[in-house]
Nucleic acid binder design. Structure first.
Lengths: 249, 249
DNA sequence: CAGCCGGTTTCACGTAGATTATGCCACCGG
DNA sequence: CCGGTGGCATAATCTACGTGAAACCGGCTG
């Protein structure tokens, strides 16, 4: 509630995101804008949800980039998903009391906390929104499935290309991509934690992709130079994102 | 509807399954039992949902074993999940119109088709059940996340042990495990498709697990001989299954 | 009984990617 | 200008796992 301007743009991003997977009525839009939020700024690498927590609020990402991850004994970590503004990555805590992963900001970010109580009131009064939130968590699961395919069966280059395709499509959906150029403050180590590879191998493959003229990546920016080529390299089919018509381009 | 006795036991399995992740009121139980179903027998390997379908019914698995999977260009396939009686593995088709995976029976099985219309009526009249179904799809997603960790970061033995732990816990929850012995008609090829390994490597690792006295596996039966050992080998923590208290043993 | 047939086991060999180590560059505070 | 730090690049070695082919085995059917 601390900054009206930023909060407003946060709501906008949420509406864009939800409208990318479903239609919203004007009452639903209005009701969403009435959700009370508490804004919090995060520095790079800061955790805002811990594995094992029992939260009473869900988080809407307003600015920046975030990930779900889980640590393993042995010190490794697996990043489970990336999230961009408009996402509510721990919506699930509404129905699953105990968190089974942590969440962390990648680069400076901003989240809005929304009390579970408000969300429950909202979904009770607007069953259509409950369905849309449910749908969103189902799309989330579809993305996990696609990552499983990558981790299980695709080689390193294909995985990386696929991830970049997915992120670019998501950026486009919430109007954060400018000519297939979007802010993506990811390090190669973080990429390797997401893709199940070693950092050095990510480095090699990244250079291959650059060398093939498909992308530019670095200094917190991803730019896709050859969309069709990247799609082919990543064996990417956006069906699993279940976007509304016209957004899948 | 073809066999009252079997249908009845199918409902029971569904109730057990749902009660393993949430409490049911007696009205909710009764309403569930009133769901109209159409029973269908499947032979081993038979597909009952196709990638790209737009279904108007969801499937409740009554008997046997089933999996979600997706084929890749190049002929490979990735199995995304296994399902045992009581599961409704394509509940998601209620809110995501187009299927993004196929489903197939592993060994002879039986499914019950439930019309989406009936499910929508049910969840409208019993919002508590809508929540429970939502919760079930969220647990599903949590299982995907755990598989991602396996595929990305665990070695072959750990993955296999983890899978066996998970399946045994699920079998226990619906009373299909007898002294940690349960029917599991899986071939080594199917295991390899699930774990992102080659069949020969699955064979090697399987023998290691047998050699270590942890399990017996073959001829369609899985028997856990040393639960604690298997849990250690698989780095298994049942939290992600979000079971009701007492079932996680 | 022969003859499969699906599934399993074993072998020999190849390779993608992990690991470790080291060096580079850009940026930042003093 | 200096040293410190975080991210990136590169090369040498190692290993877990893949590939392909062949032998094996228990359970069927004819």
């Amino acid at each position: 509630m601390q900054d009206l301007l930023q909060s407003a743009s946060g709501y906008d991003r949420l509406l864009l995101k939800l409208e990318s997977i479903a239609d919203l009525s004007s009452e639903e839009r209005a009701a969403l804008r009435r959700l009370p939020i508490r804004v919090r700024d995060l520095s790079a690498g800061e955790d805002f949800v811990q594995d094992g927590d029992i939260p009473t609020e869900s988080c809407l990402l307003l600015e920046g980039l975030a990930c779900r991850y889980k640590l393993l004994e042995g010190g490794g970590r697996q990043i489970l998903s990336f999230h961009i503004p408009g996402d509510i990555p721990d919506m699930q805590s509404l129905h699953l009391t105990r968190m089974d992963y942590s969440m962390s900001a990648l680069g400076r970010s901003q989240v809005a906390y929304i009390p579970h109580a408000s969300l429950r009131t909202l979904t009770r009064e607007h069953p259509g929104l409950a369905e849309i939130f449910w749908r969103d968590t189902l799309v989330d699961a579809a993305i996990f499935r696609e990552w499983m395919i990558g981790l299980g069966r695709r080689d390193a280059a294909c995985r990386l290309a696929h991830l970049f395709c997915e992120l670019m499509v998501k950026f486009r959906a919430v109007h954060l991509a400018n000519n297939d150029k979007a802010p993506l403050p990811l390090t190669q180590v973080e990429l390797s934690d997401a893709l199940g590879l070693s950092p050095v191998h990510v480095n090699r493959v990244l250079q291959d992709l650059r060398g093939a003229g498909l992308i530019r990546f670095g200094h917190g920016v991803l730019e896709v130079l050859d969309w069709q080529g990247l799609v082919r390299a990543g064996d990417f089919d956006p069906c699993y994102l279940h976007l509304e018509e016209g957004l899948a381009a």
